[in-house]
Each structure stands twice: as C-alpha cells, then as structure tokens.
C-alpha cells in the first residue's frame, strides 16, 4: 500500500453531528483514506465545527457518541485539521471548546488550501 500514489485529499465538513449521518460518514471515510497512506486534511466549516465540540453526551438520544474518534486521528497520522475562524465565532465557540488541536484559519487561507488539493470530498 505504501508503494502507491499519494494524493492530497481534503474532507470538507459543513454539517452538525447527529442531526444527519454526514458527520459520521465523513469520519469513516477519513479513517479509510488515512489507512491507505494518503495526504489527508480535514476542514470544519459552518455547522461542521459543532462536530468538534467538547463534552458530547449521547446517552439520552441513544446514538453512538463518535466524538472520541476525532482524537484517534492523530494515531492515523491525520494531523491537518483546519477550522474556519468565522464559523467558530458565529457559534459562540473558541478553540478551547474543541476536543482536538486544530489550526484556525481565515477564509482566504482556507480557499488557497482547497485550491492545492487533488481530491475534495464534501459532507
């Protein structure tokens, strides 16, 4: 697998967790892609930033709490996590509210990063 071609994959998350299946599906595809030794970056924009909110407790909605899995990304060598500054602010959130270390970016920086990718997958 390590002999193959490495491409730059970007996953763009714009949906909140639990209200739809997108966030969980995205996370699974990120893990699969990382297992194939690809250059993965994950971006959180709009309601996607809620995925990283610390302290999720899903017992009451009888749904699996997949937020701990974001902390496993480092072990999969997925270390490029980017959060849109404006999306964070619009939700009253700061970096301290997030359960993993991220790079908070301005829109123009994010746009440039997107332009450098080989593959972009949206969720």
């Amino acid at each position: 697998m390590s002999e193959g071609i490495t491409k730059k994959f970007m996953f763009v998350n714009r949906t909140a967790p639990y209200g739809s299946i997108y966030a969980l599906e995205s996370l699974e595809v990120v893990l699969i892609t990382a297992a194939f030794d690809q250059d993965v970056s994950v971006v959180f924009i709009d309601d996607g930033v809620w995925q990283l909110k610390k302290g999720q407790q899903t017992k009451g909605i009888e749904t699996k709490n997949f937020s701990p899995t974001y902390r496993a990304l480092e072990g999969y060598d997925v270390e490029k996590l980017y959060v849109d500054r404006e999306s964070l602010a619009a939700r009253g959130l700061t970096e301290e509210d997030l359960l993993v270390d991220v790079v908070v970016m301005d829109a123009d920086e994010l746009g440039k990063l997107m332009a450098e990718q080989d593959v972009i997958l949206s969720f």
Partner: peptide, 12 residues
C-alpha cells in the same frame, strides 16, 4: 435536553 447534551451545549 437529550439533544442539548448530545451536542455538548446544555451548559449554554
């Protein structure tokens, strides 16, 4: 409340 707790916003 269960939806607030799942999304970690029950304290705000």
């Amino acid at each position: 409340l269960p939806d607030l707790q799942a999304r970690a916003v029950a304290d705000r």
